[in-house]
Design a protein around this nucleic acid. Structure first.
Lengths: 238, 238
DNA sequence: TGCCATAACTGGTCCAACCAGTCAACCAGT
DNA sequence: ACTGGTTGACTGGTTGGACCAGTTATGGCA
């Protein structure tokens, strides 16, 4: 059994390709007056069956990017007012370019939620302390191995979010981690590691967070977590 | 033309109904080993065409609730680790009952993000101050009109989030407001108004937030916003 | 000029195939 | 007894064409 670093061959379903094309066109504001062509027209232009178009439109509908009316026409919605957080994945990288304004927004949100999660964790699950210290110690043991630091860092904050007992923070974390993955796919993993480097290396701050949680000191945990997480916001030009 | 207070008769598309049924079944963990029946089986049990099932599955796929494999079977994913924030709308009310743990999570998140948004708004758009004061004054003018207070309150915080310049906060706000709407539909609007009553009536605190933003004092704005928003968390049993 | 029936759109649903993967059972060969 | 390949019965993916059900523009009648 060899460890192959190759990505699996795509074989993307047609409806997914149509979804992508429509998504890009929507975000690029390519539809006059925000009105999409009819399903039949889209099917002919994309040279696929109408069902494939319909499945793609269902996904766009689910993402609140379009509004479909029977009899009437399908309209593009304003994602600023109608879109949901999940759009992060689609907004972060467009046309191969990273939107750093969006990336910075994500980092700011990470800091805000991470800090509050740390405070809640201190209040509700101070016992998380032991696991957190263990991860911090592991990170201190390999300060040069950026990929490992990155992975451990995810474990660290996931534990805090779990300890916060806030399901929405957990789901937000999923969304943010998803964004990170997309960023890595676009910039290359090394670039992302470098971005977080200043943060990763401050393992003493992680220990402070862990200790404050262990002591049940919510406000200290919040402050320590916030200042630590803000490092990468600053690194990204915040 | 009479003004009818009735909700429009649904005429819900079949695929949407199938989506709902499958969603409920998934969240209730009704599939043995998390494996869904084949599309053809689902079509016969729901007595709809297979395409309707496929469109519903596309939406579930978009929501990261299921994983579809050609040739293989369709599996339920663990929403705690795979789900995105948009699940709030589906998790908040299940089987007609409000999940207060989820609702409290949403209120906590609102407080955390609202506070950070206020801080960023103070830093980046202190001029928002004028509009904020205007809304606060309007609220002070009709302290008994809860629906109007609620609407103005949304305007107030939307302005702050816009002023923060953080797109993700805007999208999170959309998600949270969506949850509020669902809560209102389940409990009745009056109950939701009562829940926020303690917060709405502290208009002096809103003015403090507005003034701190006008002064460009990020930390004061953050603190004032957080304490104000925490009122409803406490009211919901936080 | 103003109204309203209707024709020509739109999306929603269905059927009946067939293509393309997956997986388990079976059956050689070693 | 184990390996490897063949086969067939599943799974999802795609297609074309038909029809139903709403919306909207049109054009002729009052």
């Amino acid at each position: 059994m060899t460890r192959m670093a190759l990505a699996p061959v795509a074989a993307t379903p047609l409806s997914d390709q149509v979804y992508r094309r429509l998504l890009d066109a929507i975000l690029a504001d390519e539809f006059i007056e925000g009105i999409l062509p009819s399903e039949r027209d889209l099917a002919t232009t994309f040279e696929v069956n109408r069902h494939a178009v319909r499945e793609a439109l269902k996904r766009l509908q689910q993402a609140r990017l379009v509004e479909v009316n029977q009899g009437g026409s399908t309209r593009v919605l304003d994602y600023r007012t109608e879109g949901r957080l999940d759009l992060l994945a689609d907004l972060l990288v467009r046309a191969g370019h990273v939107d750093w304004k969006v990336a910075r927004s994500a980092l700011e949100m990470r800091a805000s939620i991470g800090a509050d999660a740390a405070a809640l964790c201190a209040k509700r699950a101070p016992k998380t302390h032991k696991a957190l210290r263990k991860v911090a110690d592991a990170m201190a043991a390999h300060p040069e191995d950026l990929p490992a630091l990155d992975a451990d860092n995810v474990v660290f904050w996931t534990a805090i979010v779990e300890g916060s007992g806030n399901l929405l923070y957990r789901l937000s974390l999923n969304t943010l981690l998803d964004g990170l993955k997309i960023l890595a796919a676009s910039l290359g993993e090394d670039s992302v590691y470098q971005l977080g480097r200043n943060e990763y290396l401050e393992i003493g701050e992680l220990r402070d967070v862990a200790d404050a949680i262990g002591a049940g000191d919510a406000e200290r945990a919040r402050k320590a977590a916030y200042e630590h997480l803000r490092r990468t916001v600053t690194a990204a030009g915040g």
